[in-house]
Design a protein around this nucleic acid. Sequence first.
RNA 1: GCGCCUAUAGCUCAAUUGGAUAGAGCAACGGACUUCUAAUCCGUAGGUUGCAGGUUCGAUUCCUGCUAGGCGUACCA
Length: 569
Amino acid sequence: MDTLKAEVYEMLKRAIHAAIEAGELPISEAPDIPFSPTKAPEHGDIATPVALGLAKKARMAPLTIAETIVRHVNLDEHLRIDKFEIAGPGFINIHLSNKWMYDTLRTIVAAKSLYGTCDKGAGKRVQIEFVSANPTGPLNIVSGRAAAVGDTLVNLLNAVGYDAIREYYVNDAGGQVERLGESIDVRYRQALGEDSLEIPEGGYQGEYLQEFAQTIVAAEGDTYLQLSEEERVVHFRDKGIAHLLGQQKASLERFGVDFDVWTSEKAIRDSGKPEEIIALFREKAYLYKAEGATWFRMTGFGDDKDCVVIRSNGEYTYFVPDAAYHRDKFDRGFNKVIDLLGPDHQGHVTRLKNFVKALGLPEDWLEISIIQQVNLVDSDGTRLDMSKRRGQFFTLDALIDELASTVGEQFAVDVARYFFLMRANNTHLDFNLELAITQANENPVFYIQYAHARCCSIFQQGDEQGIQPKPVDAVSLRQLTEPMEHELIRKLAGFPSIVLFSAEEREAHRIPHYLLELAGLFHPYYNQHRVLDTSNIERTYARLILVQSVQTVLANGLTLLGISAPESM
RNA sequence: GCGCCUAUAGCUCAAUUGGAUAGAGCAACGGACUUCUAAUCCGUAGGUUGCAGGUUCGAUUCCUGCUAGGCGUACCA
């Protein structure tokens, strides 16, 4: 479709030039030619409103302009185009030929799992950092959403020719993990009978730390009481990080997300890079001292307030290692870095970008996208709070457990991923848990998977009846005469540009919607037109090619989303 | 206060980035299983795209101002 669009673009451009030279179009140069996909079949396969745009400049009626352009088009140039038609206020509708339909099917059948891919990214290296939750508790639902989106974006970028990787930044240093160590220490001593203790201010209240402390007591008893409190906190901190990070990794694996690189904040801090960053900032006079702390002149970059980079106690704030981390990403040679941050990080977007600018890195090198919050909603509409600090949250694992109890483990992951992916990143997502469970059978993901299973089933049935699909070159595709077949092929032909578009625009949610539409065309077709028909074997072979193409595109789309494409349901 | 996000059918959301008659699913109502899987299909109904202006051939989309909701605005990460 893409190459076809490029060819149509050239044809129209030549036609406009010809019209200008013939003195029939009073404009100086050919304009850009926009294309819009058509909504109704009678509007053809591709449409362009170019005549509408020229109306003012040429001081002519749009319809007249459209007629003039079409008159100068040389149709013989192109076998895949049937006709140009003028409609409505001045749209030029392009109707594609049967040859184009047949070519589309041949392309899909030949490309198989590669259909939809391209090399547009030219091997450019992209890193997407996502989830990056503190190792202070289990992954929550928002992390699950980020995991699904990030994983799919990497798939999409790789599909269109980039060299993209998944990276997780482990915040295993700083104040948060100190609070973790303190919290575990309190839970440990509580487990040994010190009832009067309380979790310190800013600590972690969650039950999971009580359980963790109990497993420590069960395994090692009260041996740690011999250590000083300071030693204990350090020990429990490291033990807790290892335990919780392991838990997060297990959750992600269960969710089908496999990170390529895990980068430790502690390692960044120990690398000496933060010191280099500070030295650089100091050299550029971005820093000043006030109230015992060292501040960065964020206001010089257009922000409304400065921010502390070295606290009065001499420790770095989060920003220094984070700036160093991004410097490190750049040094590793990524052409583009995309951070998917949680909703509570929106204050960081501007600052992080400013730090990157202060480091002298290209402005468009870092792209930050906020994965908006997920509200778990009860059927009565009440929202469940998911803050980790308050110890009251719904974990990703708990969500999958819930779903798995009704639909099984594999579908639970499929359903959760689909729900997370079907919304645009920057929209708030209400996840009605009860609805997701009780109406699992009516879930759109099943609708799509069922379409795929039906395709497989047709081949299995055919096999039992002794009907084997023939190679596409041995099949008369002329047999595909139904309007629904033309519409299906049109939809199939659009897949590569949807993949490219959603990769370039980081809009993963277009894939679920596309697949839903494709399934929505296939199911009615299946119901109204029989594929396997021994009384019309030629047409059967042709339809098998179409079914095979639908199956391929559904499978390819689902694979991009990390969702299974079952052969039977 | 300032900043970011959101507002589309009863509900949850689309609308290929400014194009033709704003589309799906769920919920509601009425139909279709001796036929490749009824987890499906067909049909009916459902809209002043939050409100008021502006930009232009054309606005759900862009601009301004309101209104409502969410989030952020740490010497936490």
